[in-house]
Design a protein around this nucleic acid. Structure first.
Lengths: 219, 219
DNA sequence: TCAAAAGTGTTTCTCTTACACCCATGT
DNA sequence: ACATGGGTGTAAGAGAAACACTTTTGA
């Protein structure tokens, strides 16, 4: 009987860059939040529970990423993926861990090789998904500007997008609607606030109109 | 310790329609080939072994499909997907099963709900993959005509494709090459035979040029 | 010579991309 | 008044889709 474990690839966007959530159980070894679910509890619930227990984060949408079965490992690790708004979730290390932190993907601490692999896999999935699903709204507060949204897309894709094309595509896709308010912050014209259209936040269906087209290298 | 099992969604194309491989262990209950791997064997190998043991099919490429964790189930089922050429694999029910058969997807016997779900999921994956990966060559003998290939695409996509566009796209993608022979069967002009370009059979990378474009309803 | 299947180019249109300026505000 | 970020339209090009006839064979 080969047993199953869960691990969590949780990402956010901070200062225009993707960051991943890691925990430290003891010593200097960082890792993904991970645990071993009991047989009677559904796997996704178990994953959510592990996340809550170890990091304090609750109430987020998890998506199954991949089931890793590293050679030599005696157990299978089912990885779940989430993209969330760090600002809405305070980090509270649970009793099993001594520290919880966001790390920029390009400045990670030493990780078990399998966890680094899962992170990389998760980033690839996000990138792929970004082209056809409005995943980015998950990383933003309830209302946001199109500039915010574009910044998230750019962070996830690792590429710069054209503002006018981006707006045309996002608005054309019908996944956001105007909130009827403005936000002003320092100099510059106030930005209109939008919110995601109810029921469209987690839509995974391919859309007639892609939100982000073919990506070109930064520059 | 929640245990893990494997199950196999194996499909082929017969007479222009997708068919799935099912086994009957006893009585009238059909199901997907499935089993419980030992801890020390890698999951994908275990899945291949289950398939070989129960159906006699060996040496095919398996792709992880999804890990199902049906509510109430005490175990996780990692499903693997394959699309193969039925003509190249004789079916031999192993000792664990009494019968192995291909069933058209639109004429399936009664199945456990979870297995029907996995089949449906597999069909969706195939459809999605068809748009950017040359999966279809897996279902054909070593040499085949472009007409054969188009028929496979049409079966997987459940849609009719334009012959000229299809040929242009397939040849442009560079995944097949002429075998330098012809095949004649009954009346009609003989068809050139092609084979898949070595190394491209299992290429999963997105291609610049898609093989099958946006799909329109049959008619 | 007829029926049956294979093979072949071009045109149209849609979608993607590239691109530059004015607007509203804070300091 | 100037610096800062927000917001807008259009033209050119590439890719996808639509479309009909000729070729080669078996019967």
């Amino acid at each position: 009987m080969k047993p199953v474990g869960v691990e969590l690839v949780v990402m956010t966007v901070l200062e225009g860059a993707l960051e991943a959530l890691l925990v430290r159980r003891s010593g200097n070894q960082w890792s993904l939040p991970a645990g071993t679910p009991a047989p009677e509890v559904p796997l996704q619930e178990a994953a959510a529970a592990v996340l809550a227990r170890q990091t304090g984060i609750t109430g987020i949408g998890l998506e199954q990423l991949y089931s890793f079965d590293r050679d030599g490992a005696r157990r299978v690790a089912v990885a779940y993926l989430a993209l969330i708004d760090a600002g809405r979730h305070a980090l509270e290390p649970g009793s099993e861990v001594v520290e919880v932190r966001w790390f920029p993907l390009d400045d990670l601490p030493a990780l078990p090789a399998e966890h680094a692999e899962a992170l990389e896999y998760g980033r690839g999935r996000l990138r792929a998904k970004t082209a056809y699903a409005p995943v980015a709204v998950q990383v933003l507060p309830e209302t946001f500007t199109l500039g915010d949204l574009q910044a998230v897309y750019e962070a996830v894709l690792g590429a710069r997008l054209d503002t006018r094309n981006f707006r045309r595509d996002v608005l054309g896709a019908g996944v956001v609607e105007e909130a009827g308010m403005e936000r002003r912050s320092g100099p510059g014209r106030p930005a209109r606030l939008y919110r995601s259209v109810p029921g469209e936040e987690f839509a995974v269906v391919a859309r007639e109109r892609r939100i982000a087209g073919r990506v070109r290298p930064p520059g």
